[in-house]
Design a protein around this nucleic acid. Structure first.
Lengths: 102, 102
DNA sequence: TAAATATTTCGATCATAATGGAACTATTCA
DNA sequence: TGAATAGTTCCATTATGATCGAAATATTTA
């Protein structure tokens, strides 16, 4: 995973509303939640919510599946895991310049 | 950890330069890195770097310790761990509205 | 105390993000 | 086909973030 992709994801998660949406989906279990169900939880105008959701979809953090009139949203666990790994990757393995200092 | 605090941290980590700084520090091992050393890695003007670092310090993601003329920076592993946990917390435990659907 | 080094603060500019009402599109159902 | 429901896109406004040169501050060393 590229650093710039990771930063994009983190930036998207850095908005309180979007973080709430993703956490909601992570907890939601199989099937995820419809946009309208998410709206009941976060209580913001539909257009604002739609924008936030499209940010999340664009970053790959969630995906959607249409089921009749309803758009069901689910989290991308693989990407969330990758993100978490990248954040703590190579912990304490040393950086050249730091090594040179010793 | 509050959702709004987590979002603040993620927002800070969502900038590519700041993410690079934190990852650099995570890899750096005991002692961390001086601001000047970080600058050699990221290659941006001192004033810009200083702003990014103060964002990170403000969010609690890193801390600093003066050592003579040098300001040594270190990551806050505890906060990084808390962040990671929050992101995947209560995975699939279900959300009321989703449960009601079944 | 003056010069050198390390880093921050100031101040201004430019770019990007968040927000939400209104109009639009897609899908179902009578 | 027309009305209802679910969600998106358009558009404009307001707010926030990124950037960096120049000047300021802190610390050491000559």
């Amino acid at each position: 995973m590229e650093l710039s992709d990771a930063a994009l994801c983190l930036e998207k998660l850095g908005n309180p509303t979007r973080l709430e949406i993703v956490r909601l989906l992570v907890r939601s279990g199989p099937g995820g939640l419809a946009v309208g169900e998410i709206q009941k939880h976060v209580g913001i105008p539909a257009s604002t919510l739609s924008h936030h959701i499209s940010h999340l979809v664009g970053a790959g953090l969630i995906w959607q599946e249409r089921e009749g009139r309803v758009l069901r949203c689910q989290p991308n666990f693989g990407l969330l895991d990758a993100l978490v790994s990248l954040l703590l990757a190579e912990c304490c393995t040393g950086v050249e310049i730091a090594a040179a200092r010793r």
